[in-house]
Design a protein around this nucleic acid. Sequence first.
RNA 1: GCGUCUGUAGCUCAGUUGGAUAGAGCAACGGCCUUCUAAGCCGUGUGUCCGGGGUUCGAAUCCCUGCAGGCGCGCCA
Length: 566
Amino acid sequence: MDYKKELCQLLSEKTSLSADEIEHLLETPPALEMGDFALPCFKLARILRKAPARIAENIHASLNDLPHWLDKVQIAGGYLNFYLDRPHYAKDMLSSVAAAGERYGASQEGAGRNIVIDYSSINIAKPFHIGHLSTTVIGNSLYKIFNFLGYHSVGINHLGDWGTQFGKLIVAYKHWGKHDTVEKGSIHAMLDLYVKFHHAAKEDVSLDEEARAWFKKIEDGDPEALSLFAWFKELTLKKVSRIYDLLDVKFDSYAGESFYNDKMQPVIEELEAKHLLEESNGAKVVRLDEYDLPPCLILKSDGATLYATRDLAAAFYRKKTYDFYKCLYVVAYQQNLHFRQLFKVIERMGYPWAKDMEHVAFGMVSMADGTISTREGRVIFLEDVIQAAIEKTHRLIEEKNPDLANKEETARDIGVGALVYKTLSANRIKDIVFDLDRILNFDGETGPYMQYTHARALSLLRRGGEEALKEEPDYTALSSPQAFSVVRLIAGFPEAIQKAAEKYEPYLITRHITELAQAFNKFYYDIRIIDENASATAARLSLAKATATVIKIGLALLGIRAPERM
RNA sequence: GCGUCUGUAGCUCAGUUGGAUAGAGCAACGGCCUUCUAAGCCGUGUGUCCGGGGUUCGAAUCCCUGCAGGCGCGCCA
């Protein structure tokens, strides 16, 4: 049952306010000792023309017989504080977790709705570096969150597989590359060639001309150019699939820029037909003056298409193919203006679904000594970071738990978990300065801490045994502040998922399970969980079980695995 | 210059959409393993919540203004 709603109903009967108005006013007190719900009476003072404390007193007096689930009501200044009956509430919450299992917090609110999520979207022939981590991990988490809420997520890796850089790469390969070196070195070798090209092109401008010519050959379907292009693409995808496997990230589609090559002409024609396309300095643009936005460039003066042209084609294709409820672009905030323009153009074309498109922006990643630059070869490979985290975990396992059964898998889960947790620990919009030492510190609010707490709770259950849980639990054993804090956080978990989905902010889940883990660890130390009292032990173990379940679900929604032992 | 985002403890960040004494983690120092996993727990200290006005019973939160920084502003993506 929904205690908040029940309380609002009760209060609306005692006041002149509706249940909705009460719900809007009701809040959670800052400390556990102040109760579970609070009604600040200050706003009512004006309406009722009485002092807040007086209003609180009046309401308090009218509540003569409390419902069984309410323990007490107290007046504190202008506040009216409500205390739930702890054993009753604990029993109710733990029963619902036990009943729902790993579906606790799930819903069917999104049934029949598709959510298209554009994330990761890597560039072919370029390294998968730390700058790609946010989009990959945020997108993956949203994918899982929406599926959990009953939506059907469609994950799209919008590959950057078009553009003059492929001409450059071919030129570099023809001048300095060897087949075996590239085949073996894959992205590293291609990056070397790319960097070499940029250095050489500074001296010799004819190289740029050559690169443009080779790209033209790709466009024209020249067999040699096409086969090289296909080869670069194949090598890249093979290489990155290993990283995606490590991160446990999957996509439903890899339709990228080249895929939309033959789908732009109809869009251009439609823009023409709707008289939205204007000539400006030889180029074709859609004016957005009335929205205080600069014009959106659709065609270059040489008639070539642009980023926006391709994104328009992609948007129409996605609407037609998936009939999306929302289409999310998990892309860094640099492209803020681009997406505002893109959505406006679609709106001006007369499509109301333009409002269903959202730019889920996130902050930039930089290195301690400056920005990432692929051209300069200033990059940190994601694979190296993941390896470092896994190795660190191996060392810790040897030190702390050398007899662990599946060390490889566990080290992977924890190392990757540390990295993913860090990426999803703060508001998306925050910039991140990449700090390997910080990622490799597994103390405090970290992925390993979550996993450790989960494993610790499971360890208790193994020790207590299944029969311990069969005992009739005595929920009064969960009335202590330590235990009840855990109960409340478990109860608040479904709402955290809702908020995370609503705001496209996975960190709300990260924060919630972090608080849960902290509360559980305090409970664990202050209170003996398994003791001679079988019914109290049963209650405490069911709390441990629910904690493990919620942490596991939360981590799964972030894209982190929860090992059973560590 | 214009637009946009950010500014909270030494560092990284929360802050229930305007509420009760502004909270966590890291880093530092001290304590706790013959008892349920010490990747843990407890304790110690620090704040002009960027500055200045305003609205309000009440402001880190809302409005105005200034400052600092990031990002963006036509033929790259």
